Lab assay of single mutants.
Amino acid sequence: MEVRTIKVFTTVDNINLHTQVVDMSMTYGQQFGPTYLDGADVTKIKPHNSHEGKTFYVLPNDDTLRVEAFEYYHTTDPSFLGRYMSALNHTKKWKYPQVNGLTSIKWADNNCYLATALLTLQQIELKFNPPALQDAYYRARAGEAANFCALILAYCNKTVGELGDVRETMSYLFQHANLDSCKRVLNVVCKTCGQQQTTLKGVEAVMYMGTLSYEQFKKGVQIPCTCGKQATKYLVQQESPFVMMSAPPAQYELKHGTFTCASEYTGNYQCGHYKHITSKETLYCIDGALLTKSSEYKGPITDVFYKENSYTTTIK
């Protein structure tokens, strides 16, 4: 009895394709271990004539594949690729409408935090270190965002349907971005203890939790000093293409032309909904596939993004 075979390709990165001759009487799992086709788990399936010449994702289970996976995804987590594939199996079914010149995501599976993050990423200057993220990001900007969303979920250790947080998501993504040249110098002034300067680099240099107003941050924000008295913390120097200011959701007025974009969060910790506000020729609110415009805006804002380049204080 002759062994019926077909020729397929296996890959971990969709760049390096490895030619395989597979036995049609055995499952993919018996031949390769966990195997995925377009995100779908085909591990328990036997090869079919229609699979001839198709590319299958496999887990990096030998040295060659491990090197290829690390170079593309910059992670050695053995569960990463499987999590990416199972997320992709959902995100490829989502709709990605162009809204006001940006790629958004039609609401499904509690994905409003991903839509808000995706919209924000198209408006701030950011370059990702893992080629996987950078490639998928370019495709997302062009309207094909399924891979990018699935990668975000995998890097953030999230599953489809789980509630997510924009600030946490951005923080994970910033860790995989090139923020080497970003720098922030802060000064804390206390009447009792004097003053202390701190220099922050990388992710810490672009994120701040405690106030939404970048102007206020430049002037000074009140913080408790270690001595128990009130101290003032203010920005001395900022070198970065953008800054992200966050605070627990509270009524906040966004003035046209003073910011790049913002995240609105309605609801409580267990259950809520994100919308995205962007400042173009007027203010726009993007909620999944829905767009509304207004000249002014007041609502429960939790993150505001500002364009920056270089700032030095005039406070002496």
Rank of each mutant, 00 (worst) to 15 (best):
E2I: 07
E2A: 12
V8L: 11
F9I: 08
V12T: 08
V12L: 02
D13M: 10
I15W: 06
D23R: 10
Y28R: 06
Q30R: 14
T35A: 14
D38A: 11
D41H: 07
V42R: 05
K44V: 14
I45D: 13
S50P: 13
S50L: 14
H51Y: 06
G53R: 10
T55V: 11
F56V: 09
F56D: 06
P60D: 13
N61A: 12
D62N: 13
D63L: 08
D63E: 12
T76C: 15
L81A: 04
R83N: 10
Y84Q: 04
S86K: 12
A87T: 06
N89K: 12
T91V: 09
G101M: 11
G101W: 00
L102G: 07
K106C: 08
D109R: 03
Y113M: 06
L114N: 07
A115I: 01
T120G: 01
L121V: 11
E125M: 04
F128Y: 05
Y137A: 06
R141V: 11
E144F: 07
L151Y: 05
C156N: 11
L163R: 15
D165H: 08
M170A: 03
L173F: 00
A177E: 00
N178I: 05
C182W: 04
V185D: 02
N187Y: 02
N187A: 12
Q195H: 13
Q195I: 14
V203W: 12
A205V: 01
L212T: 11
L212Q: 01
F217T: 04
C227H: 00
G228M: 06
A231G: 03
K233H: 07
V236M: 10
A247F: 04
A247P: 04
P248N: 14
P248M: 12
G257S: 06
A262Q: 01
Y265K: 01
Y265T: 08
G267T: 15
N268R: 15
Y269L: 12
C271N: 10
G272Q: 03
H273D: 03
Y274C: 15
H276D: 03
I277P: 07
E281R: 06
L283N: 09
Y284V: 14
C285T: 09
I286V: 07
L291K: 10
T292P: 02
S295R: 10
I301C: 07
E308C: 08
N309F: 03
T313N: 15
T314W: 15
